[in-house]
Design a protein around this nucleic acid. Structure first.
Lengths: 235, 235
DNA sequence: CACCGTTTTGGAACATGTTATGATTTTTAT
DNA sequence: ATAAAAATCATAACATGTTCCAAAACGGTG
């Protein structure tokens, strides 16, 4: 009976899989253009209604593609670094490596995720993924605090929030085309370094200066093209 | 003949105005729902084609509404503060006062601006507005540097870029519904304070601590609801 | 195997952003 | 005044996300 019930679920899961795979392939092949639900359902060999039954909306499908693509957690486990500050930036480089290594694909996905047709129910990631990510990053920053690199007076939560918003802003800017892919990682890294330095102890500051300096130099190397990102209006 | 030529342009300008006004009213009345181009053109008493002739897309119309609503520059001139650090945060409070005083309206607009149907040509503000804003903020932060509050080793441009991304990220988070309106101003302010503190001199740090502490306390007062914003996934 | 509930299917339908088109009106130039 | 030019108008058309519905297919149960 458990097997029987699973037969139903299995078929569903398989369809779900087909749909996600078809969506991913279509995005890879034609960069968003022609990721119509009609093309998608045809490619996945299901009816037009099925993706709506199984996911609810086009946006949800794309979100599934997005989360399916990333195995950050396990790759993160294998990071080895001298100190907790370096580990933060190693994790950052790892995370943004996904974007920079396949920019067209991820930009398309991000754009689709930004399109919020209609009311609420938004959010840029599933709750589970969020919890996972939050745990990882909390651990990272908290370690830095416990190793004496960050001022204990500044709550880790607030640091995390600012860092999250920073990366979100950069990704937005990038997805909208204001920021070239080359500037992605360094823009976020620089912001992280700045924020962390704002909360750093005497001990932590030199460690952060290394990264800050490095990202600054990276940005300088194509400064002419970047200028201040278009999004600065929002300030 | 100049008058004659202007007759054409005048009529155009008047139509443009009618369209923007109609769009604004429709958004105010029905919060995005029913800002269809058909409803818009009817309300503005023009044909469906005209907004496309004059603006190019729905998004462009909304952008025009957005920029039409804000008279930040002149209100900014009237700011009077003790030092350049305080002025930065006064400007920030002023800027985000627009959003918090009419959140539904601006959230709708932001959502529409995020919707990027099709290819490039995006950007969240017109080039002129950008130049204006950039000048103002450059002046603010640069003053802080010249008054000895900020380390000269850190380029103003980079600080500005991080701050811009930060505000962009917060606004994104807010527009997507992950961040309550009450947390808007303080989230950005806290990030600004952190970033600036990361670039501050001994002299500047205490000034920033005042603001940082204040925003922290603000956030604490409704911490239960905020948690870490949903966007943290992106890190 | 026959029955029943769930899901998928095919297809139509709807709202909407956008484009194309040919007629009509308004403005400018001769 | 009249022709040329420019813009708008009314309208149809198209693509697309989404919803709805009856019929068919499927899976589990007696």
């Amino acid at each position: 009976m458990d097997e029987a019930i699973s037969k139903r679920e299995q078929a569903k899961a398989e369809r779900r899989l087909r749909i996600v795979k078809a969506a991913r392939d279509l995005i890879r092949e034609t960069g968003d253009t022609d990721l119509s639900m009609r093309a998608l359902s045809q490619r996945a060999d299901v009816s037009l209604s099925t993706p709506y039954n199984l996911f609810g909306s086009k946006r949800a499908v794309v979100l599934a593609v997005f989360e399916d693509e990333r195995d950050f957690t396990e790759r993160f486990q294998r990071l080895e670094t001298a100190n907790s500050i370096d580990r933060i930036f190693a994790a950052h480089d790892l995370a943004f490596g996904y974007y920079t290594s396949d920019p067209d694909f991820y930009r398309t996905i991000w754009r689709a995720l930004l399109n919020t047709r209609g009311q609420e129910e938004t959010g840029l990631a599933s709750p589970e993924r969020l919890k996972q990510m939050r745990a990882i990053w909390y651990g990272l920053v908290n370690s830095a605090g416990e190793e004496g690199y960050l001022d204990k007076d500044i709550p880790v939560d607030m640091l995390l929030q600012s860092m999250a918003h920073l990366s979100g802003g950069v990704l937005l800017s990038w997805a909208m085309g204001s920021l070239p892919t080359e500037a992605l990682t360094s823009s976020v890294g620089m912001g992280y370094a700045l924020c962390l330095r704002g909360a750093a102890t005497e001990t932590g500051r030199p460690l952060l200066d290394v990264h800050l300096g490095q990202y600054c130099r990276e940005q300088d190397s194509f400064r002419s093209r970047v200028s201040v990102s278009r999004i600065s209006e929002t300030m």
